[in-house]
Amino acid sequence: MLNKNIETFIGCDNDYQEAELVLFGAPFDSTTSFRPGTRFASKAMRGESFGIETYSPYQDKDLEDISVFDGGDLELIFGNTEKVLGQIEEYTSKIVTDGKIPVMIGGEHLVTLGAVRAVAKQYPDLHVVQFDAHADLREDYLGEPLSHATVIHRVWDILGDNRIFQFGIRSGDRSEFAWGKDRVFTNKFNLDGLEEVVEQLKGKPVYLTIDLDVLDPSVFPGTGTPEAGGISFMDLLHGILTASGLNIVACDVNELSPIYDQSGVSTAVACKVLRELLLAINTNQS
């Protein structure tokens, strides 16, 4: 029998009604401050995902055994950042209102703001855990308050003090670190201290955002703003498995720019990170 050719991320072809997790892409990179291209990440990851297995030997779990619906990419407006954030917020709100967990593929990191706006309305006590090379705490970037360089400051505008926990940070303006000192928890360079934060946040709703440039460029060169001195894939995997002890109510993986790694290795790494994240969230929810 002939069927429509609908490409999904490997193992994520369940129906929406039965799914516990809803995967979707937000192909947006209009505020990228250095090298654009993250809008192509979700499409590249779906195609390349069939180069990995649905089974994870790290967790002894399989995507075939969980319920994930891949809703495809949002059709985002060009030229109006606030409307784009509104589209992401509206779609995310539908998912959380239906009692499911949104898992977003960026796009640049600003897409996180649209999702957090929706999730914070559903979970007023929301906390954010961020894996990233960059602090993203600027008040504005070249006068613009909506930027991937300001996204976590905008998230702070919603959540307030002591509800954002950053790991792997190794880049930012001096003023960002000074501003954030008494407002957010920042662990520089690595994921040390994550276990203590997981214990501290036990039972609280958490949004986990993974900027893939937290990885060292030797592991993950395919990103718009690579920063030397990052963590390894195994470090990130350990962080994801540790974070599975959190009550993750929403999450994202962002900042893959596949055009800067023609070998395809960065896209393959991103696919594997997403697979492990999906399986780890399911473990926490079961």
Results as ranks from 00 to 15, higher is better:
residue 4 K to C: 06
residue 5 N to W: 09
residue 5 N to E: 12
residue 11 G to W: 12
residue 14 N to C: 14
residue 14 N to E: 14
residue 15 D to A: 11
residue 20 E to N: 10
residue 22 V to D: 07
residue 22 V to S: 04
residue 29 D to V: 00
residue 29 D to Q: 09
residue 42 S to I: 11
residue 44 A to Y: 02
residue 49 S to V: 11
residue 49 S to I: 14
residue 55 Y to W: 08
residue 56 S to I: 03
residue 61 K to I: 00
residue 62 D to F: 05
residue 63 L to M: 07
residue 65 D to G: 00
residue 68 V to N: 12
residue 68 V to C: 11
residue 69 F to N: 11
residue 71 G to A: 15
residue 77 I to C: 09
residue 77 I to V: 15
residue 83 K to N: 08
residue 84 V to I: 10
residue 85 L to I: 00
residue 87 Q to E: 15
residue 90 E to F: 10
residue 95 I to V: 15
residue 96 V to C: 13
residue 97 T to R: 13
residue 98 D to F: 00
residue 105 I to A: 00
residue 107 G to R: 08
residue 108 E to T: 12
residue 111 V to S: 09
residue 115 A to K: 07
residue 118 A to P: 09
residue 118 A to S: 08
residue 118 A to K: 03
residue 120 A to G: 05
residue 121 K to L: 04
residue 129 V to M: 03
residue 131 F to G: 03
residue 131 F to L: 01
residue 133 A to F: 05
residue 133 A to I: 04
residue 136 D to W: 06
residue 138 R to Y: 03
residue 139 E to M: 06
residue 143 G to N: 13
residue 144 E to S: 13
residue 147 S to A: 01
residue 149 A to F: 04
residue 150 T to K: 06
residue 150 T to Y: 05
residue 155 V to T: 13
residue 156 W to S: 07
residue 158 I to R: 01
residue 161 D to N: 14
residue 164 I to T: 03
residue 167 F to D: 01
residue 169 I to H: 11
residue 173 D to C: 02
residue 175 S to N: 05
residue 176 E to P: 04
residue 183 R to T: 05
residue 183 R to N: 04
residue 187 N to M: 10
residue 192 D to G: 15
residue 196 E to Q: 13
residue 199 E to S: 10
residue 202 K to G: 15
residue 202 K to N: 15
residue 202 K to I: 05
residue 203 G to P: 07
residue 206 V to P: 00
residue 209 T to R: 11
residue 213 D to H: 07
residue 215 L to Q: 09
residue 222 G to S: 08
residue 225 T to I: 13
residue 227 E to D: 10
residue 229 G to K: 07
residue 231 I to V: 15
residue 233 F to P: 04
residue 238 H to M: 08
residue 239 G to F: 05
residue 241 L to R: 14
residue 242 T to Q: 13
residue 245 G to N: 13
residue 246 L to T: 07
residue 247 N to H: 12
residue 249 V to W: 01
residue 249 V to S: 01
residue 251 C to M: 06
residue 252 D to V: 12
residue 253 V to D: 00
residue 254 N to M: 13
residue 259 I to Q: 15
residue 261 D to C: 00
residue 266 S to H: 07
residue 270 A to E: 02
residue 272 K to M: 11
residue 275 R to Y: 03
residue 275 R to P: 10
residue 279 L to G: 12
residue 280 A to G: 12
residue 281 I to G: 03
residue 285 Q to M: 11
residue 286 S to D: 01
residue 286 S to K: 09
